[in-house]
Design a protein around this nucleic acid. Structure first.
Length: 491
RNA sequence: GGCGCGUUCGUCUAGUUGGCCCAGGACACCGCCCUCUCAAGGCGGAGAUCGCGGGUUCGAAUCCCGCACGCGCUACCA
């Protein structure tokens, strides 16, 4: 298997790529990288009605954002171009024509209504849908008559009427289907476009795909593809049907499950590496304990025998934890660089642009307190605001009185005013001494100072925060707090 | 209805040749520690009769049979 691995990711451009799609792309890519093979992206746009403008770009952008590079496909080209099915129609039409000539496919003139009716009846009788119509057995005269009476026909593939079709799935083992229970499926639509079934078989053959790795929902159509490969005289690739990704209600992941598009995760400020690491764990594992892994380790160990059979539910909370892990692993400067665009997006306009050096000094303080870049603006707002707004009563700590709080703030202000340096070590030393002197517990004293300096009850460590804010800002805010409390009518 | 796949803590999973598994790790949850708050971190806890019922075996989550449930497919969609 080591030589000539060629796998593909073949999305249809019908909207924003979601986690399920991209997880499939990820597994294909990892498989290719593990085996030193090629990863190909192919656009399956054979359904003209469902095309969504911009969807191809959205797809490719998502892959690029995640750093999943493809060796052949749109934007990069390759020896088997074009990689867009709507530009390969002639291939499919030619193949369909040959199959008709060989008697392996036939033209079908049935209306959708008639088909639907027949299927309903068969189902009511408890049968499989099976072969739906009689067009397969038409005489030449009947065909001519039908041609005149209806519009352009579709081309159906005639499934064998006996025997079984068997696949050795690399993940699921042997699976087989009874041929006479299979329907004669359409390979060429009346608009001249192929269906997925024909196009996928043709392209996978001509692009020399070695393994078809796709979601489990495709397993039922595998016998069709196998029969097509056979009828066309093509050697079929190997198959591996990946477990699906489900929403919290255990049904196939879809828009109604909330955030499913990759772009949404990007906008929320998840790191691509964290998302990759999380997604790979949905259906694959390294061992019984390792979860946080560098990409190289994943590539080195990514084999199909470690892929799960059962579907997985997408757990947002665990993703957020993973995101936090990756944030804590990077350098403060990297964090700052990552936060920058989000701050410029989310901070009040008058506070933008932010000073990069200042941001660099803030980053280490919030590094272990942030999980998503989306929250960066809120958790750093008080660093940028001139004066955070807050209710003066929140200055008063549990067990303290307004007057005592005011006195404490004044003492702190005096201490701060006379501080020779404004680094956190000396600030802490002198403020602790002050607290001791006036008999206010550290919890109460620093709590009051925290509110005075940041307007918040939960922040990074107080003295580091003061150091980063700097003497001027801290003194101004302290003075303001004293004024506010004194004028608050609480005393 | 038919066909197919799946079934280990709430969730992601380990468990690949039956014994080291009366089932391990992680997220979430709870408690304690650390502590100026919030986090992060450390320690500990609760949580799975391995879907159910039969077998086989000295011994089964692991093998066999049956059943149940869930999901997927069942389009001139992919």
């Amino acid at each position: 298997m080591a030589e000539n691995v060629r796998v593909r990711y073949a999305p249809s451009p019908t909207g924003e790529p979601h986690i399920g799609n991209v997880r499939t792309a990820l597994f294909n890519w990892l498989f290719a990288r593990h085996h030193g093979g090629k990863f190909i992206v192919r656009v399956e746009d054979t359904d003209q009605e469902r095309l969504v403008p911009g969807a191809v770009d959205a797809m490719l952008d998502s892959l690029e954002w995640l750093n999943i590079q493809w060796d052949e496909g749109p934007r990069v080209g390759g020896p088997y171009a074009p990689y867009v099915q709507s530009e390969r129609l002639i291939i499919y039409q030619d193949l369909a024509g040959k199959l008709v000539l060989q008697g392996r496919a036939y033209r079908c003139y049935c209306s959708r209504e008639k088909l639907e009716q027949m299927r309903r009846e068969r189902r009511e009788q408890g049968f499989a849908t099976g072969h739906a119509c009689q067009c397969r057995e038409m005489t030449e005269q009947q065909r001519v008559d039908a041609e005149a009476a209806t519009g352009p026909p579709v081309v159906r593939f005639g499934m064998p009427t006996e025997g079984v079709t068997r696949v050795h799935d690399l993940i699921r083992g042997d699976v087989e289907w009874q041929n006479d229970l299979q329907e004669d499926f359409i390979i060429l639509k009346s608009d001249g476009f192929p269906t997925y079934h024909l196009a996928v078989v043709a392209d996978d053959h001509f692009m020399e795909i070695s393994h078809i790795m796709r979601a489990e929902e495709w397993l039922p159509s595998t016998p069709r593809h196998l029969q097509l490969f056979d009828a066309l005289g093509f050697e079929p690739p190997q198959f591996a049907h990946l477990p699906m990704i489900l929403g919290p209600d255990r049904s196939k992941l879809s828009k109604r499950h909330g955030a499913t598009a990759v772009s949404e995760y990007r906008n929320k400020g998840f790191l691509p590496d964290a998302l990759i690491n999380f997604m790979v764990l949905l259906g694959w594992s390294l061992d019984d304990k390792t979860e946080v892994m560098a990409l190289d380790m994943i590539k080195d160990n990514f084999t199909l025998d470690r892929v799960t059979k059962s579907a997985a539910i997408f757990d947002q909370e665990k993703l957020e934890w993973m995101s936090g892990v990756y944030i804590r692993e990077m350098s403060p400067k990297e964090l700052a660089g990552n936060m920058l665009p989000f701050l410029e997006r989310d901070l009040p306009k008058e506070l933008v642009p932010v000073d990069r050096d200042y941001l660099d000094s803030i980053a280490p303080l919030i590094q272990e307190r942030i999980k998503l870049m989306e929250t960066a603006a809120d958790s750093t707002l008080y660093f940028f605001e001139e004066q955070p707004e807050y209710d003066p009563s929140t200055l008063i700590q549990k067990g303290m009185e307004p007057q005592g709080t005011l006195d404490a703030l004044k003492s702190a202000l005096a201490s701060l005013n006379s501080a020779p340096t404004f680094d956190h070590e000396s600030l802490e030393a002198s403020l602790r001494a002050t607290g001791l002197e006036i008999g206010v517990s550290p919890r109460q004293f620093f709590g009051a100072l925290r509110t005075a300096v940041t307007g918040r009850t939960a922040t990074p460590p107080l003295f580091e925060t003061m150091e980063v804010l700097g003497r001027e800002r801290v003194l101004r805010r302290m003075e303001w707090a004293v004024e506010r409390l004194a004028g608050a009518n609480l005393i």
